[in-house]
Simulated assay, not measured.
Amino acid sequence: MRKGIKLALTITTLFIAVVLSIMIGCAKKAEDAVVSPNEINFVTDYATALETAQAKNQKIIIDFYTDWCVWCKRLDSFTYSDSAVIEMSKSMVFAKINAEVDTLTAQKYIIPGYPTLVITESDGTEIERIGGFLPAEEFIETVNNYLNDVGTLADYLRMADTNATVEVNAIIAEKYESRGMYDMAMKYYRQVIDADPDNAEGKTPDAMLSIGGILMRDKLYDDAIAQFKKVIKKYNGSESAIDGELWLGYALRKKGDTTAAINHYETFLKNYPNYEDSTRIKETIEKLKNPPPPEEG
């Protein structure tokens, strides 16, 4: 009888030990899954990012990405895997937001392309943003500069108050455009053009092209076409003129003037027979001449 009781107690003790061991092991695995020293612990939704940042009084980096974005994947592979970037993430809230899933947050920050990294205060107020891929060392330097208010939109606006150079105004315009603040971008691009009509500082053609691009976004195609023609005429034969030619063809297509677009591209190839991307232009002409049949239903 005593042997039976002893055996039962032994089995019970072993069972409890095994269960505790499994529970401890699972807890350890769960802990490792949440915070690994070899990877960034990304927050995956905006509300949690704000809540965490405010609780810890930390800044936020929101990485807006899509599943098909090649450069987003390069950020994951080459930048976020870097030990120094991982260390930086411990003092900030790093969030990854799929812009095609959380469309409301993407719209809130007016995300023009991917990847776009928005650096914010703990309450979500934008400090600055990074458009595109940066390798680890440049990423760290850029983020640290922005956190110290160096090179931000606010920083350049202060510069403009004391010394509104062509270069400063051009940078301000680009920063406003990247934030989707197109009226302000247009204002500063025009200041660049007015201050340097002879393009002594090399910023005027890009400012003119950018204005055309903004007009395109607003579907003001005739105004955009006129703008691109100005660039082509004023800077004939230059790289800026070539860019203007390509933008003009695109504007004609967006306007729906297929015949004019075809004629423009064919003339472009005659004028620039050695253009490096002529194959793509020829493919575009072929698609315009032979559009796919409309889908049924």
Rank of each mutant, 00 (worst) to 15 (best):
E51Y: 01
A47S: 13
V43T: 14
K28V: 10
I61Y: 02
A49K: 04
V43N: 08
I62K: 03
Q54M: 11
T66H: 08
N57A: 00
V34Y: 08
Y46I: 02
V35D: 04
K28H: 08
Q58V: 06
K28G: 00
A33F: 15
L50K: 05
T66Y: 11
K29L: 15
N38V: 09
Y46E: 01
V43S: 12
I62F: 05
I60D: 02
N38L: 09
E31T: 05
A49R: 01
I40D: 01
Q54D: 08
Q58T: 06
A47M: 08
T44R: 15
V35F: 13
E31Y: 09
T44Y: 15
D63E: 14
F64C: 07
A49W: 12
F42A: 01
A30K: 08
L50R: 04
V34D: 05
E51W: 00
K29I: 15
V34T: 10
A55M: 09
V34M: 05
T48F: 12
A55E: 14
D32T: 11
E39K: 15
I40S: 01
I40F: 05
T52H: 01
Y46S: 01
K59T: 04
K29E: 15
A30M: 06
K28L: 06
F64E: 08
T44D: 12
N38I: 07
L50V: 10
P37T: 11
D63H: 10
I61C: 02
T44N: 15
S36N: 14
A47L: 06
A33C: 05
A30Q: 10
V35E: 04
Q54K: 14
Q58L: 12
A33P: 04
K56W: 08
N57G: 00
I61P: 05
K29N: 15
A47T: 09
A53D: 02
Y46A: 02
T52I: 01
Y65S: 06
A49C: 12
N57S: 04
P37G: 09
I60N: 01
D63T: 06
N57D: 08
A30F: 08
A30W: 07
K56T: 04
P37V: 10
Y65G: 03
E31R: 13
A49L: 12
